[in-house]
Amino acid sequence: MASPETIAALRQTLTSESEPLARRYRALFSLKHVASLQPPTDATEPAIEAIAAALFTSSSELLKHELAYCLGQSRQKAAVPYLRRVLENRSEHAMCRHEAAEALGALGFKESLDILKEKRDDPTEPVEVRETCDIAVDRIEWETSEGSRKENLKKSDFASIDPAPPLPLSKDPSIPELESTLLDTSKPLFQRYRAMFTLRDLASPPDLPTAVPAIQALAKGLNDPSALFRHEIAFVFGQLAHPAAIPSLTATLSNLDEHGMVRHEAAEALGSLGDEEGVEETLRRFLNDPEKVVRDSIEVALDMAEYEKRGEKEYALIPETAAA
């Protein structure tokens, strides 16, 4: 188990504005590992409190959005009050509030439905916040329903708690049908996200015969009218780290008219592909990008690329064995 001294040291790094952003990210992922241990340990709540401390003091919107994501992955009810506070605060950046809403959906507690429905139905809220709350409500209602227990879902290669589950298993999954659902803007976002994560799972491992066709289908989602949707496609590409996604991610990052939340996600996805030829050079072109969230993402992505090239086991300040 992580010692109190280890948690305190990681908290110090995470909350220090003088530390390089990439180093703070590594501290965050170390704390996320401790916060997510099952069953919880004596270090669980201190790790959550350390992450939350940075959530209310950091000047980086990018880091704050990642802090919210990590709290959502913890499976711990202790994270809920911090996330509600961010979602309720209209002075917070919409990207952070969207991530707080998504995190509440990932945690899956029915007690979060009140604020999620309130924000979903408030026409004065930013569209990305409303859309995220819509998906989060559907996710909690699905997860707590009888129907979800009867669905036969493929075990994912990814440990993340996703905004939506994949669709139920089919003996012969049709990528064209999944693509049709993915791109159908008349369907609920939750249903389209389910198609998205089904396609993701058909692209892993990368040597599956369905991998490249699934990635090609997902790439079409980068033309969707919803910035939230486009950002999730880029996030999925980062999880997959498949070279077939590089052209789409590069085009997205290079589009200065694209929403910052989408470009930043494309940058970090490229960071996960940092050992592929030309990726690092692409990232370096945007070190002085006019948008701060993109510049910050490039800093983190280049650090991730270096980690990929070195073949390190964990993107963290402490190895997994030290936190267990």
Score class of each variant (00 low, 15 high):
194 R>L: 05
205 P>D: 15
196 M>L: 14
287 L>K: 13
218 L>R: 04
239 Q>R: 14
299 E>G: 02
219 A>C: 08
312 E>Y: 08
278 G>Y: 07
222 L>E: 13
213 P>S: 13
321 T>G: 14
324 A>F: 11
238 G>K: 07
189 L>M: 13
229 F>W: 12
275 D>Y: 02
196 M>T: 06
192 R>W: 08
208 L>N: 07
305 A>R: 10
252 T>L: 08
238 G>D: 11
226 S>I: 02
206 P>S: 14
224 D>N: 15
273 L>P: 00
202 L>F: 04
301 A>Y: 09
294 V>D: 12
216 Q>S: 12
321 T>I: 06
285 R>I: 00
257 D>I: 00
318 I>A: 15
225 P>I: 13
197 F>E: 11
249 L>F: 08
209 P>H: 06
214 A>N: 09
280 E>P: 00
202 L>K: 03
230 R>T: 03
287 L>A: 13
324 A>P: 00
246 I>G: 01
268 E>C: 01
322 A>I: 00
296 D>R: 08
192 R>Q: 04
192 R>T: 04
260 G>V: 00
320 E>M: 12
269 A>N: 08
306 E>T: 06
309 K>E: 04
310 R>F: 06
268 E>R: 08
201 D>V: 05
261 M>Q: 03
313 K>H: 14
321 T>V: 09
283 L>A: 02
317 L>T: 07
287 L>P: 00
215 I>K: 02
283 L>D: 06
240 L>N: 04
270 L>M: 04
203 A>K: 07
206 P>K: 14
274 G>K: 09
222 L>P: 11
220 K>G: 08
256 L>R: 14
268 E>D: 02
271 G>V: 04
201 D>W: 04
229 F>D: 06
189 L>N: 12
302 L>T: 09
289 D>H: 15
216 Q>W: 02
270 L>K: 02
241 A>D: 03
208 L>M: 11
268 E>M: 06
305 A>Y: 05
269 A>V: 02
194 R>F: 09
272 S>D: 07
287 L>V: 09
236 V>K: 05
233 I>S: 10
217 A>C: 07
226 S>R: 04
268 E>H: 01
285 R>P: 00
262 V>K: 05
295 R>A: 06
281 E>G: 09
324 A>C: 02
235 F>Y: 15
233 I>W: 12
231 H>D: 14
227 A>Q: 13
254 S>I: 06
324 A>V: 10
239 Q>P: 03
247 P>F: 12
189 L>Q: 09
217 A>E: 11
323 A>M: 15
219 A>M: 09
271 G>Y: 03
273 L>E: 11
320 E>P: 01
224 D>M: 02
287 L>N: 01
260 G>R: 10
195 A>N: 08
198 T>R: 01
214 A>D: 07
323 A>Y: 08
217 A>Q: 05
301 A>F: 09
221 G>V: 12
267 A>V: 11
298 I>L: 03
285 R>Y: 01
217 A>R: 01
271 G>F: 04
196 M>E: 05
323 A>F: 07
308 E>P: 03
282 T>K: 10
304 M>V: 10
198 T>A: 02
279 V>S: 07
260 G>I: 00
247 P>N: 12
221 G>Q: 10
226 S>L: 11
267 A>G: 05
287 L>Q: 14
198 T>K: 01
267 A>L: 05
